[in-house]
């Protein structure tokens, strides 16, 4: 590992994963053996679940949402990784000198709306103000509390070879929207971030026994990071089918144009479900009833495999390519 923190430690790829495993988990291991986005407070299956999520995004207001909405929906989606219903959040706000109060109000109103829609409480908050030499913004750190919906345990340790991989919606729109907006690539496309809660779509699936073995929201680092986090250190390989990946045309064209790898692009409202093959048709049928899940697809399966490459993509023309877990940032190509 390099000696200082680099921007790439935050991109959700391999370096982020290594920083967390080698530094944070070594010194601050999670309670009750959790290796998930959230952690149970008690070891019993019906106990409280807690998660913490930091939000730093530039721009703070973007097509499709803002950092306020993102902070609540991101927390809700992390609680879902343990199959939990959100009860409420506490939040810390680091405000930068110069931030317009109107902007702050807009962001807080978005948080309030999401909390209300999910019947969630706001337990406690804190504010600090710091100076900045850059465009003033804010950072939000949330802690979310929830209770498990069903009685079965889910998580990376419950996945095994032979399981299907389901993607709940079109991928890449958040990352492409933010990248375009941040770098002012004037693409005449009506791209919007997919920032959304997956709770209403997912809740019933957790009620029903052992339908789902593991659930992740594919945020920073995209689908590829989810696959590597699940398959890393296990003799598993994810085989994905390119033709089954749900992608909106505008996102696909933007990725082609900018030379981005769609599977590494961030999402804020896309879940990945690992499940027994027999459950796939039922789960897909359920997901298709919801707006956020109408494009849900079974995108591949887990197989036994001990090679270096943990993700194999079966390409549209019938070829294959392995996909390495890189640290490269999503920077466009020259030509």
């Amino acid at each position: 590992m390099s000696k200082v923190i680099e921007a790439r430690h935050g991109n959700g790829g391999r370096m982020t994963h290594e920083l967390i495993s080698n530094m944070f988990h070594r010194i601050l291991p999670m309670a009750n053996g959790s290796d998930n986005d959230s952690c149970p407070i008690h070891t019993s299956t019906d106990g409280l679940v807690v998660t913490t999520d930091g939000h730093a995004i530039d721009p703070i207001i973007f097509p499709g949402g803002n950092i306020g909405k993102l902070s609540v929906t991101g927390t809700i989606n992390d609680l879902l990784a343990l199959g939990a219903k959100p009860l409420g959040i506490s939040a810390g706000f680091i405000l930068q000198e110069g931030l317009p109060l109107d902007t702050l109000e807009t962001i807080l109103q978005s948080m309030a709306k999401e909390l209300k829609d999910h019947d969630m409480n706001f337990y406690s908050g804190d504010t600090k103000v710091i100076q900045t030499i850059e465009e003033p913004g804010l950072f939000i750190t949330t802690t979310g509390f929830g209770t498990r919906i069903g009685s079965s345990l889910i998580g990376p340790s419950y996945v095994k070879a032979g399981m299907d991989i389901i993607c709940t919606g079109p991928i890449g729109s958040h990352g492409v929207t933010i990248l375009g907006h941040r770098n002012q690539f004037e693409m005449t496309s009506e791209l919007q971030s997919d920032v959304q809660s997956l709770f209403f779509m997912m809740a019933d699936l957790f009620k029903e026994g052992d339908l789902i073995s593991c659930f992740r929201d594919a945020t920073r680092g995209g689908i590829l990071s989810v696959m590597y986090e699940i398959c890393q250190n296990r003799s598993l390989q994810a085989v994905l089918k390119e033709t089954r990946l749900p992608i909106e045309n505008g996102v696909k064209s933007s990725c082609d144009l900018l030379g981005l790898e769609i599977l590494e692009v961030a999402n804020e409202g896309v879940g990945i479900i690992f499940c027994e093959k027999k459950n796939t048709p039922y789960i897909l049928k359920h997901l298709h009833n919801f707006k956020e899940g109408r494009k849900a697809e079974c995108i591949g399966e887990l197989v036994d495999g001990s090679g270096r490459a943990k993700v194999i993509l079966e390409t549209a023309i019938g070829g294959q390519r392995a996909m390495a877990w890189t640290n490269a940032d999503n920077l466009p190509r020259i030509c």
């Binding site: 790439r8 391999r14 370096m15 030379g259 790898e261 090679g307 270096r308 490459a309 390519r321 392995a322 996909m323 390495a324 890189t326 640290n327 490269a328 190509r333 020259i334």
Partner: peptide, 26 residues
């Protein structure tokens, strides 16, 4: 590697080393 490119062929996605790395050519 793509995150620590020592040679130029690892820098760009058009470089042979980068392609071999990213697409897991063995």
């Amino acid at each position: 590697t793509p995150s620590t490119p020592l040679g130029s062929c690892m820098v760009s996605s058009e470089g042979a080393c980068n392609a071999y790395y990213n697409y897991g050519v063995e």
